[in-house]
Design a protein around this nucleic acid. Structure first.
Lengths: 316, 316
DNA sequence: GACCGAACCGAAAATATCTTTCATGAGTGA
DNA sequence: TCACTCATGAAAGATATTTTCGGTTCGGTC
C-alpha cells in the first residue's frame, strides 16, 4: 500500500520526461507529424487511433493490440511517442477527442484536389486545408518552448535565421519583421554565407533554423556551428525528432498536413511555419513593446502615407 | 505471424444488467438526479466528480478515494450508480466531458491581441485571425478572374512576378513553385531589374503584380511596362480600385483583415496573397498536368530521398 | 435504555489492465 | 555474405480496478 500522498489532483499533471504536454485535441495532427518517424507497427496503431478515436477509447491495451495486429508493447510505445506517459493517458485523451468530435460539427472531410476539379472547388479546398493546417499547428505548438524562444529572441544581441527553398522565404519574412521593430536579424542567402555568419555568433545571440524535413543539411550545418559557439538555438521543424533538433535548445513543431500530388507538402508546411514565425514575432513585440511601439507606429505611418496618396483613404 | 485478425472489440463485458447506457454529457444532471438516493460517502464522490470533471479524470480510483476521504469501493459504487460499468468507464466519460467543456469556451478570441496577452492566447488569436483571413479571401475571390489568370499563366511563354517587401516573398514563392513544374518564371529582386525584364515581355507572356496597397510604385511601374508591351497582366491586390488595376487585365482581390498595433496588416495580407497564389499554382498545375506530373513526382522523389536518409520508412 | 436488523463503509484480497524487460528475427549497410 | 542495428512480441513485473468480507453506524423496536 502506497499511502504516499494525495497527488494534488487539480493542478496540471507533472509533464513526464517527454517535455511535450499531452495534446488535447491536436491528436490527429500529432499523428501526422510523427507518422514518418514511426515504425510500421506503430503506424498501424497510430492510424487506428486517429481514424476512430471513439472506438479505440473503448479498447484496452490488449484489445487495441489485437485490432491492429500488434502487441501491447507496441501500443504503449506508440502512446509514448505521441507524448503521453502511457496508454492509459492516451486513452483518456482519445475519449476527450471523441467527445469533442461528437459535440462539434460534422468532420467535414474533404477529398483531395483532383485534376478535373473546377476552379471554385480548388479555392474552397485549398482554403479549408490551410485553415486546418493552422488549427493543427496552433493546437500542437508547445507554448513553453515558444515562450522560451521568444525570450531568447527578445534579448538577443543579434539573430540569424536559416532556411532554404520555401523555408528560406519564411526565414526572410521573420527577418523583415524583426528588423522593422528594431531588432538585428539576418537571413543569409546561401549556406556558405550562413556558416560564415554563424561563426560570429556567441552566447546571447540566437540562431533559428527553419526546415520542414528536419534534416536539411544546408540549414543544420550553420545551426550546429552557432550551437557550438554558444548561441541560443531554435529549430522550427515538422520533424521534432529530426537531426536538426540535436543542435536546438528550443524546438517548435510545425504540423504536417496530408498532401496530395497537386498539393505538395511545401504548401502546408509554409503555412504552418509562417504561423509559428508570426507567433514569435508578436511575442517578441510584446516583450520589447516599449522600444518596438515607435517602430510599429512608424510602419503604420509609412503605410498610411502610401494609402493617402491613393484616394480617400478609408483608414483602418 | 499470427494474423488472427480479431473481428471486433466486442470481447469486453457487456454493459451490466443496468440497461442504462453511459451518459455522455448529462453527467452533472445525473448527479443531481441521483443524489438523493446516494449515501453520504457516495455523494461526496459524486460532488467531486461533477464539480471538477477534468481534475477527477486525472485521478486513479485510489486518488479520487483519498481526495474525497472515502475508499476505492465507494468510488466504484458511485460509478455504478451513475450508470457506468465501473470507475474506468466513468473516468473515460469524465475526460470526454472535460474536453467538451474546454472546447466550449473557445470564442473568447474576438479581441485584439494585447500587450499583456499570455503567449498561448497569442497563438490562438493569430491562428484564428489567419483562418478568418483565409475564409474571407476564399469567399471574395472572383473565380472567373482567377480562371482567366490561370489560363494565361498556363499558356505563357514566360512569366514575371513583381512584388516588394512582404509581397516580394509571395512573388518568390509563386516563382519557385512555377519553376518546379517546368514553367518559366522570374521574380526580379529590385525595381530596376523588374522594369528591365518587363521590357522584354510581349503578347503571350504574363506579368503578375502583387501589392497589398495597390499603389506601390515599384510594382506598378514594371506592370505598366509589361501592359504596354502587350503582355497579359494580372494584379493581386487588396485594393481593387487602386492604381495598379489600371494596367491589369485580371484583378484578384485579397482580403484586408482588421489589424492592430501588434498585428500589422502585412500579416493578413501575406496570408491572403499566399492563398491566391496557391490557387493560381494548383489551377495551372491542373491545366498542364501532363507535363507537370513528372515534375511533381520528381519533387516527391527528392523529398522522399531526403527523408530516407533520416530513417528507413516511407509509408504514404 | 437495550437490542436487532439493515445498510454503509473501508481494508485487503482477487482480478484486470498496463508497463517493462528481454530474446528473437528481419532488414540494412559494409 | 556477415555483422549489426533495431523493430517486435511474449512474458514477467507493476499498477490500477473490482470484489469480497467483516466491522460499524444508524434507525427502529421492545
Amino acid at each position: 500500500m502506497k499511502e504516499t500522498f494525495a497527488p494534488l489532483a487539480g493542478g496540471r499533471r507533472a509533464t513526464g520526461g517527454g517535455g511535450a504536454p499531452p495534446a488535447p485535441a491536436a491528436l490527429a495532427a500529432k499523428v501526422r507529424t510523427l507518422a514518418p518517424s514511426m515504425t510500421r507497427s506503430m503506424q498501424r496503431v497510430a492510424e487506428a487511433v486517429a481514424g476512430d478515436p471513439a472506438g479505440c477509447a473503448a479498447l484496452t491495451v490488449t484489445g487495441l493490440a489485437e485490432l491492429t495486429g500488434t502487441s501491447e508493447a507496441t501500443v504503449v510505445r506508440t502512446a509514448r511517442l505521441l507524448g503521453y506517459p502511457g496508454y492509459r493517458d492516451l486513452r483518456l485523451a482519445l475519449a476527450g477527442l471523441a467527445a469533442q468530435q461528437q459535440s462539434g460539427r460534422a468532420p467535414a472531410i474533404t477529398t483531395d484536389i483532383a485534376v478535373d476539379d473546377p476552379i471554385a472547388d480548388v479555392v474552397a479546398k485549398l482554403a479549408y486545408d490551410e485553415q486546418q493546417t493552422l488549427a493543427d499547428t496552433a493546437a500542437g505548438l508547445d507554448t513553453v518552448q515558444l515562450g522560451a524562444a521568444v525570450a531568447a529572441l527578445a534579448a538577443a544581441r543579434r539573430t540569424d535565421v536559416y532556411g532554404i527553398g520555401a523555408s528560406g522565404l519564411v526565414a526572410q519574412d521573420l527577418t523583415q519583421k524583426m528588423l522593422r521593430i528594431g531588432l538585428i536579424a539576418h537571413a543569409p542567402g546561401d549556406t556558405h554565407l550562413a556558416v560564415t555568419n554563424a561563426v560570429q555568433l556567441r552566447a546571447g545571440d540566437v540562431a533559428l533554423a527553419i526546415t520542414h524535413s528536419g534534416s536539411t543539411g544546408d540549414v543544420i550545418e550553420p545551426l550546429r556551428v552557432a550551437f557550438e559557439r554558444g548561441a541560443t538555438t531554435v529549430a522550427i521543424t515538422g520533424r521534432p525528432d529530426g537531426p536538426v533538433t540535436q543542435y536546438a535548445d528550443h524546438v517548435l513543431t510545425t504540423s504536417t498536413a496530408r498532401e496530395s500530388e497537386l498539393r505538395p507538402a511545401a504548401m502546408s508546411s509554409r503555412t504552418s511555419q509562417l504561423l509559428v514565425v508570426d507567433c514569435l514575432f508578436v511575442g517578441v513585440a510584446q516583450r520589447i513593446y516599449e522600444s518596438a511601439a515607435p517602430a510599429l507606429a512608424a510602419s503604420y505611418e509609412a503605410l498610411a502615407h502610401r494609402h493617402g496618396a491613393l484616394r480617400g483613404d478609408r483608414g483602418r
